[in-house]
Design a binder for these strands. Structure first.
Length: 233
DNA sequence: AAAAAAATCAACCGCTGCACG
DNA sequence: ACGTGCAGCGGTTGATTTTTT
């Protein structure tokens, strides 16, 4: 076969004809683990498989390491607390799985995404928290069916003046971070009230844009969760 | 017990944004 | 300023396992 360099478009990340695909064997896992433990990734996944002696694509190695082999990975079922955090963050930021996973120690974006798509979504559907038809959007999970008074924010360009908090939100707060952490993260959000002692059940976010809302860190989410369910008024 | 259907989840694909020359 | 190569990410696929009929 001739080896004409491909000058049109991006070159493939690896030679697909010469890399193994499909499930990883325990032997491959051991090789990858051993190599990374002794050499690290060197910030270059593309060259890693060759150096480690693996017939795998660099992307595949990266995925395997990040999702299954790296230390601290938490396997097994999700707890009620984790369910709650996923639901609440999804309602706030949508399908940003990497961001959501970063709030769940030991969980990966792939894990959270699979869990949401296969089980949690059904759980919420069954409970009437999201509509049975149409897409699951930030707006319609924030405004679960028992609270029809909240406006549809899916196309909004600015935030309403207040986030209105209600009791009896289904999310428990037992696994959330300390108030010290909350204060630190809240202080990075322009316009946010960082005086935690002054927070009441109705916290004003007047002037914040939708982008600001997406930037709200877990601290403010904590405040919202610890006070009850929320919608917008 | 066997077949079919449904559920699960590991892995791949392709796009995006960033860093760097 | 621009092009290139990369890691990171979300969407999707498909093999495997579990449940139902």
């Amino acid at each position: 076969m001739s080896q004409t360099p491909n000058t049109m478009g991006r070159a493939p990340c690896c030679d697909k004809a010469n890399v193994k695909r499909g499930p990883w064997s325990p032997e491959e896992d051991a090789i990858l683990k051993g190599y990374i433990h002794s050499h690290g990734t060197d910030g270059n996944w593309i060259s890693l498989p060759q150096k480690a002696g693996l017939k795998r694509c660099g992307k595949s190695c990266r995925l395997r390491w990040l999702n299954y082999l790296r230390p601290g990975i938490k396997l097994g079922g999700f707890t009620e607390e984790e369910d709650s955090i996923i639901c609440s963050l999804f309602s706030s930021i949508g399908s940003r799985w990497a961001v959501i996973a970063s709030k769940l120690p030991g969980r990966t974006d792939n894990d959270v995404k699979n869990y949401w798509n296969t089980r949690l979504k059904k759980k919420l559907l069954a409970g009437g928290w999201i509509p049975a038809t149409g897409n699951t959007t930030t707006a319609n999970i924030i405004n679960p069916s028992p609270n029809p008074s909240y406006p549809d924010l899916s196309t909004a360009s600015t935030l309403p003046h207040q986030i209105h908090l209600e009791p009896n939100f289904f999310c428990p707060s037992s696994s959330l971070p300390s108030l010290t952490d909350v204060s630190d993260s809240a202080s990075s959000v322009a316009g946010a009230n960082t005086d935690l002692s002054s927070w009441t059940t109705e916290e004003s976010y007047s002037g914040l844009s939708i982008d600001n809302l997406l930037d709200l860190d877990f601290g403010i989410m904590y405040k919202i969760l610890s006070n009850g369910s929320f919608g917008f008024s």
